[in-house]
Design a protein around this nucleic acid. Structure first.
Lengths: 229, 229
DNA sequence: AAACTTCTGTCATCCTGCAGACAGCAGCCC
DNA sequence: GGGCTGCTGTCTGCAGGATGACAGAAGTTT
């Protein structure tokens, strides 16, 4: 299953890869590149969703805020991934915040222009559906985690996924460089900042991981896997 | 936003509506109708996902089971909806249980045949993507509920949604006929059977709802809405 | 109609993890 | 360098809700 996910991931990354010269040129025409500084918003809830985005550089977080002001992170978007894709489906308004976690470069693609572009390149149809399907699968796993797992397991799964997706393997340790603050991890794993801290500290004390404000090192990947069960 | 969801729902329902005679005939050819008795499984996790299903009659639940045997309901499928659609995306194996909640009639459509059918009827492309997108949106709302809401609010939201989607309005009360057992509601709202019972009993005592084993009546819809916030 | 099984209703108990408070650090700006 | 501001580390009390146990009601089977 992990393999399948990876397969899909690569396909997303290559959403436009098999396009011919002609189409790539056209794609360039309907695309506008934007630089977005760290911590700056890309879009807001209730804003009309007029375009979808392809993330060329940096990381983006998609968040929702509850009636009483609590924030949760719906998803992290990594380089090479697409976000704001509900625009493509005719969803009229954004229903989350998109915020740059680093200095980012994004390509904005107008939804209507993209729609006709897809019509002219019908091989993109299935790819777009798969892209949405991949997100669906991720969300279903997220739901499962929220229901079945306790705070420690959720944080452990998160670290594992982060390491596998964004880490560099050096020897049998995995380094993750631009780390997140504990508050962000809390918002991703539906727990509190304090609980995240105590779980991380505990894992560090057991020599499963090591970390400081900037980086995370997974030292015993299998211990994490064991913890999740 | 509720309107948008309804709009999409209708579109799914009409997935095949605009097809011409010719295509409908072809669709009939690649479709096989099956009757499934109450409580009988339709598919299992790890089973090859060779087809997708269109639910003509009855209700279906999609569930996952954790390593230690706890069950959760991922989604309820109502008449007119599609399920098992990940097959269409090339996902090799099912990753949930699908079980008939009532006596059901489903149409099974082989995924490869369906793919070529969609190629011949390209207007279905966007519809399929939207169908998946709708589920994505539902799941994101589910995640939000799990993170932001407490047990009472989750159960209240569930009842509200059930009433709005499946209920019959009579006067200013809403009747929902084939009700679920408390255990099912617990598995849908990520809480325990006992907690569901006490929340329902409490709402009944406050005359917001009424219920017995067979049916549910929402008496004060606005009280439910208020509770969710 | 009797014997089962499955669901509902209710309690008492226990525990995970949240919330508040505060001290120590690091980075940043003046 | 000094003073902000934002992040981390730790402790404590508290509460929402899980769990187990059991009795009664409703369906099902024979």
């Amino acid at each position: 299953m992990a393999e399948m996910t990876k397969f899909w991931y690569l396909e997303n990354f290559n959403l436009f890869k098999e396009l011919n010269q002609e189409s790539m040129k056209e794609l360039g025409r309907i695309t506008s590149m934007q630089e977005i500084a760290k911590n700056q918003p890309i879009y807001f809830p209730r804003e009309p969703s007029s375009s979808l985005f392809f993330l060329k550089k940096g990381r983006v977080k998609l968040t929702r805020i509850s009636g009483d002001g609590k924030e949760m992170i719906l998803a992290l978007v990594n380089m090479g991934e697409v976000f704001g894709e509900m625009a493509y489906l005719g969803e009229g308004e954004r229903n989350e915040f998109a915020t740059a976690l680093d200095d980012c470069i994004v390509c904005a693609i107008n939804k209507d222009e993209f729609k006709s572009f897809v019509e002219q390149n019908p091989e993109l149809n299935l790819k777009m559906t798969r892209l949405i399907g991949l997100k669906l699968k991720r969300y279903s796993e997220r739901i499962e985690g929220l229901v079945f797992k306790d705070a420690e397991q959720r944080v452990a799964s998160f670290i594992l996924k982060l390491a596998d997706e964004n880490g560099k393997k050096i020897g049998d340790e995995i380094f993750v460089k631009p780390f997140l603050k504990h508050q962000d991890i809390a918002e991703l794993t539906a727990t509190s900042r304090q609980t995240v801290n105590s779980i991380l500290t505990d894992l560090r004390q057991k020599r499963v991981i090591n970390f400081d404000r900037k980086k995370l090192i997974v030292m015993k990947r299998d211990e994490l896997v064991k913890k999740i069960g």
